[in-house]
Simulated scan of single mutants.
Amino acid sequence: MSRPDRAPAPATAPAAEDPRGPRASRAARLLLGAFLLAAAVDLVSLLAGAELGHRIAKPLLMPLLAAYAVARGGPRLLTVALLFGWGGDVFLLLDADWAFLVGMGSFAAGHVCYLVLFGRRRTSPALGALYAAALAGTVTALWPDLPAELRVPVAGYSLLLTAMAYRASSLGLLAGAGGALFLLSDTLIATGVADWPQPPVPDLWVMLTYIAAQFLLTEGALRTGYGERRTTV
Rank of each mutant, 00 (worst) to 15 (best):
M1F: 09
S2N: 07
R3W: 11
R3Y: 09
P4S: 13
D5Q: 11
D5T: 12
R6H: 11
A7M: 11
P8G: 01
T12M: 09
A16S: 10
E17N: 03
E17S: 10
D18P: 02
D18A: 13
R23D: 13
R23E: 09
A28V: 02
R29W: 09
L32R: 15
L32H: 10
L32W: 04
G33L: 12
G33V: 09
L37W: 06
A38M: 11
A40I: 10
A40R: 01
L43V: 08
L43W: 10
S45P: 08
G49W: 00
G49H: 07
E51N: 05
G53K: 02
I56H: 01
A57K: 14
K58H: 04
P59K: 14
P59N: 15
L60W: 05
L61C: 10
M62V: 01
P63I: 04
L64P: 01
L65F: 01
A66I: 13
Y68H: 15
Y68A: 08
A71F: 09
A71N: 09
G73H: 13
G74A: 12
R76N: 08
T79Y: 08
V80E: 15
A81W: 01
F84N: 03
F84T: 02
G85C: 14
G87F: 04
G88H: 14
G88N: 05
V90L: 11
F91N: 00
D95C: 02
F100L: 08
G103V: 05
M104G: 13
S106K: 04
F107H: 05
A108G: 06
A108W: 13
A108I: 03
A109I: 08
G110C: 07
R120E: 12
R120S: 08
R122I: 04
P125V: 09
G128C: 13
A129Q: 14
A129E: 10
L130N: 06
G137I: 05
A141I: 04
L142P: 06
D145Y: 08
A148M: 07
A148V: 08
R151D: 06
V152S: 10
V152N: 09
P153D: 12
V154N: 04
V154P: 05
V154H: 06
L159W: 14
A165I: 07
Y166A: 11
R167P: 03
S169F: 07
L174N: 01
A175P: 00
F182P: 02
F182D: 01
L183M: 12
D186M: 00
T187R: 03
T187M: 03
V193T: 08
Q198D: 01
P199N: 02
P199A: 06
P200C: 07
V201G: 02
V201Q: 04
V201E: 04
P202F: 01
W205I: 01
L208S: 13
T209V: 06
Y210G: 08
A213G: 09
A213R: 06
Q214K: 08
L217Q: 09
T218R: 04
T218I: 12
E219L: 10
G220N: 01
Y226P: 00
G227S: 12
G227F: 00
R229M: 05
R230Y: 07
R230D: 00
R230V: 15
T231Y: 13
T232G: 00
T232D: 06
